[in-house]
């Protein structure tokens, strides 16, 4: 019972069956509308956005994919290089060396900052973590359109996976950092354990920010071209290579600027990390309520970013 259609079938036409001559449409009872037929058999609309709890559950089911994807990306990164995975540690070390040469030696920002090298390297590594997470997040959807268009999975897997890759990268950097700390005579202390909650909060913050950027970048991929400039400005304002509290002490800046500098999430996470790792960076150099800021930023970005990303779940990779 095939039909040759010169015109497209009308919307109300019964779906054409295939089972041959046994059931000509004429002897059937009034045909069900497609919607009724779908409802009767429990069919659902393809590609609809799941509810927030269902989305979280789907994401949890994909946790192995998220980690495997992150590890695979990390491994694939240097697989063509002769030195291979050694670059995981070489890259952050070279980065720190460049910053030390420019800011420590040429511009002498080190003046008045004790343990300048550990101070600088911690700042560079911690900020790089946020910076790279944001950059990776911006490209997470727009750069993986093939994957998004071919397979079905909660799209938040991608930005989260990229953030996880950055976390793994940071852990390599931290190995280098520990070597630097010991080499510059910073003694190991129990306070080093504070690095764990500080990193956990920073990871949550980064993930949230990456989710926001992923949605923006999916809509307008050009943002990826703009982000390096935004991020560089952010870095210079975050006290990566200069000490915020030393600068604030000497100058009489308006109160709003002081608060803004101290509440800056990147500065908060950098300061916490320095406080945890460097003994000369004592609690007196931390801004007020720094842990509250750290938790607040993590919650705001993490929860807000996740919901913001989920709201557009069904639109990624389309059109």
């Amino acid at each position: 019972m095939s039909q040759l259609l010169d015109k497209p079938p009308t919307a109300t036409a019964a779906p054409s069956g295939l089972s041959g001559p046994a059931d000509p449409p004429s002897d059937a009872a009034p045909a069900l509308s497609p919607a009724d037929l779908a409802a009767r058999h429990g069919l659902t609309v393809s590609g609809a956005r799941p509810s927030l709890p269902a989305y979280v559950r789907q994401l949890w089911h994909r946790r192995h994919f998220i980690t495997a994807f992150a590890t695979a990306k990390l491994t694939a990164q240097y697989s063509q290089a002769k030195l291979g995975q050694l670059w995981q540690i070489m890259t952050p070390l070279l980065n720190a060396a460049v910053y030390y040469f420019i800011f420590g030696v040429l511009m002498n920002t080190r003046h008045g900052v004790p343990d300048y090298v550990p101070f600088l390297v911690t700042g560079v590594f911690v900020f790089t973590f946020t910076q790279q997470s944001v950059m990776a997040g911006t490209r997470a959807i727009s750069g993986s359109l093939g994957l998004v268009r071919a397979l079905h999975f909660p799209r938040a897997s991608l930005p989260l996976s990229y953030c996880l890759q950055q976390l793994q990268q940071l852990l390599f950097s931290l190995c280098a950092l520990v070597a630097i700390l010991l080499a510059f005579g910073v003694p190991p202390a129990p306070s080093w354990l504070l690095a764990i909650p500080a990193l956990a909060l920073q990871f949550t913050f980064n993930a949230g920010l990456a989710l926001v950027m992923a949605r923006l970048g999916a809509k307008t991929p050009d943002i990826a071209q703009l982000m390096p400039f935004v991020l560089r400005t952010w870095m210079y304002a975050s006290g990566v290579m200069w000490s915020i509290d030393t600068v604030l002490k000497d100058r009489h800046l308006p109160h709003a600027v002081t608060v803004l500098l101290e509440a800056n999430p990147a500065a908060v996470y950098i300061d916490l990390m320095r406080f945890a790792l460097i003994d000369s960076f004592h609690a007196g150099r931390l801004p007020d309520h720094v842990w509250a800021w750290a938790v607040g930023w993590a919650l705001l970005a993490g929860v807000g970013g996740f919901i913001y990303f989920w709201k557009a779940e069904e639109t990624y990779g389309r059109g």
Binding site: A11, P34, A35, A38, H41, G42, L43, T44, V45, S46, G47, A48, F69, S144, G146, L147, V148, R149, A150, L151, H152, E314, T315, G317, R318, G319
Partner: peptide, 24 residues
């Protein structure tokens, strides 16, 4: 479910999957 439908409806049983794992 990877492209939106402009008009009309598409109902599916479960999640149809494209046989194309290439991108991953």
């Amino acid at each position: 479910g990877l492209l939106p439908v402009e008009r009309g409806h598409l109902y599916t049983d479960g999640q149809p999957s494209l046989l194309g794992v290439n991108a991953a």
